[in-house]
Design a protein around this nucleic acid. Structure first.
Lengths: 170, 170
DNA sequence: AGCTTTGTTCAAGTTTTTTTGAACAAAGCT
DNA sequence: AGCTTTGTTCAAAAAAACTTGAACAAAGCT
């Protein structure tokens, strides 16, 4: 007559309570940033363990698939959130987390924010030209004003990013 | 022998090319912010039209359901991105967009960022206590250090938000 | 009071995103 | 060269998020 044990948010078994809490903490975190859960799991576990882990370790400890682990690690590398640990006398690659805020913020801005901002500016350029071709003068003026406003938003956004990097990553 | 016309990103028909472009621009925008597409459609249309619209107008012009429009408007109101237009001699409610950056940024931070930051801080508090109960001293020191680091990240995050509001919403 | 218009709610349906796992490639070892 | 281990890729499955639409509530009008 066993009581069913309460189901944790993630189904892995080999983690301590605290490790699991940290992993969940990062799962929430990446979700807020619009990144897939697996990134939070992987980074979280690397963050709270003192030594680097291999892809296989991650699969085993987190109970995720090899595919997820591989793709997650790739994305984390692109974001500058993990790097390959050097000098392990071993064939497989081990990963360690970047634990300074600077590269994390920088990578997120570079990979997730800047591209959207830039493509947005480009689109606005095109929209702007389209608006200037509006026949009716009153309508044209209204449209132009609104679009100018959008441009100014984008410009401010572009200016804020470096400040953010400077403030967050010191 | 008609050629099939190219399918626009959104299927509505009553919009000019330019209006559609602006709506798409905002659809992309809200997606980056992790908000549902309908919010971008609604806000975008309100933004580029000179007069307020009713829920019914939105349903008709955007080709979305009444449910989406209702829920989208509610969320936009909560975010401070639209408000009810006053003094229309009419039974139904008309909505107009907030076009200053300040309330938009403020609302997003208040509704989407702060709550996560606060709940994160709370969780860290609990995790922190859990860590301090670790038996092994070396392990305890490592865990404590990492968790302190997380706390400092959260603190910096909390400090940056007001600066963001000040810089973006002037 | 009954009819009509306006707006909300939420279960079910749809779409989008993420994860899985099996096939494959690459490289080390014997 | 053949075997084994490590890691990648991508189509299909699963999960998550969003939208729909029908039922309902609320309030104005006659």
């Amino acid at each position: 007559m066993d009581l069913p044990s309460p189901q944790p948010e993630t189904a892995s078994v080999g983690l301590t309570e605290l490790q699991q809490q940290i992993v969940d903490f990062f799962v929430d975190g990446v979700r807020v940033l619009g990144l897939p859960r697996s990134l939070g799991e992987i980074y979280g576990l690397l963050f709270i363990l003192p030594s680097p882990l291999s892809l296989d370790d991650l699969v085993r400890l987190l109970g995720i698939s090899k595919g997820s682990a591989s793709q997650g690690l790739r994305m984390l590398k692109t974001l500058g959130a993990v790097r390959e640990a050097s000098g392990n006398g071993d064939r497989r690659t081990y990963y360690e987390p970047a634990i300074e805020l600077k590269p994390l913020v920088g990578g997120f801005i570079r990979e997730q924010v800047r591209p959207h901002l830039d493509s947005g500016k480009l689109k606005l350029q095109i929209i702007s030209e389209s608006a200037s071709r509006t026949e009716n003068p009153a309508e044209r003026e209204f449209l132009t004003k609104r679009i100018e406003r959008l441009k100014s938003w984008m410009k401010r956004g572009g200016r804020v990013l470096p400040m953010l990097q400077k403030i967050l990553g010191q």
